[in-house]
Design a protein around this nucleic acid. Structure first.
Lengths: 114, 114
DNA sequence: TATATTAATATCGATTGTCGATATCGATTT
DNA sequence: AAATCGATATCGACAATCGATATTAATATA
């Protein structure tokens, strides 16, 4: 699709969100993001994780679980900051482009027609 | 900021949104986006507009208004499709990463603590 | 009718990011 | 020790980003 480019940032926000809830690793993220409608190959995801770590948004450690060697990523405080900012912008974006009722607003007086 | 990269797609979604409401031109968009917290230079914006037109999301015409030669962009039907998809994803994203009450949800039973 | 001014748009080149395909790694099983 | 398997890393071609700078065309001024 032409509009893949629109969602590159969304992917990183999702990653930060998950990494805030619990440590995450690459191939789990691939599955999880696919569940959200973002299909991306390892060759796309791993460089993104590397850069996000390099930028100080994530930190990682090696672990062996069930005999599988994984690199678990956790959010850093800089990452939390970025996620906070992303939340602000996501609210902004959603409120601007999405009709109020689609966001779960039940104050029918303030609904806007489009 | 390190997290500029997270919002590249947001910018394009905003552009589609505005271009759906009325024809828009470059330097107006620069001001409008700045109002939303996205500062970007002409050298960043114009290539984005060119690509979006090339991709068939926008179409443009020259017009002279108040003695100013402007290129007005309008959304195409492919652009509407992309915006529709962006709405879906923006809702998804917002609902996942943002506490419900921050989106205007007044169903207090389903509020989630974080 | 030249020239200065101005808002708007376009281009440039260096850097960085994306992507699918392929390679590698290391723990476990056979 | 060879094969398997899940997971991670790398590669190279291509595309996008960015600030700085140049160009454009309409108007105002001389």
């Amino acid at each position: 699709m032409v509009w893949r480019a629109l969602f590159r940032g969304f992917i990183q926000v999702h990653i930060l969100h998950h990494a805030r809830e619990h440590p995450v690793y690459g191939s789990w993220l691939i599955d999880e993001l696919a569940r959200h409608g973002y299909t991306l190959s390892p060759g796309t995801l791993y460089p993104i994780l590397h850069r996000m770590e390099e930028d100080g948004l994530l930190s990682s450690t090696h672990q062996v679980i069930d005999g599988k060697r994984r690199r678990y990523y956790t959010i850093t405080s800089a990452g939390e900051q970025a996620l906070k900012e992303a939340r602000r912008q996501a609210i902004e974006l959603a409120k601007e482009i999405v009709p109020a009722q689609d966001l779960g607003n039940c104050d029918t007086d303030t609904q806007e027609k489009q």
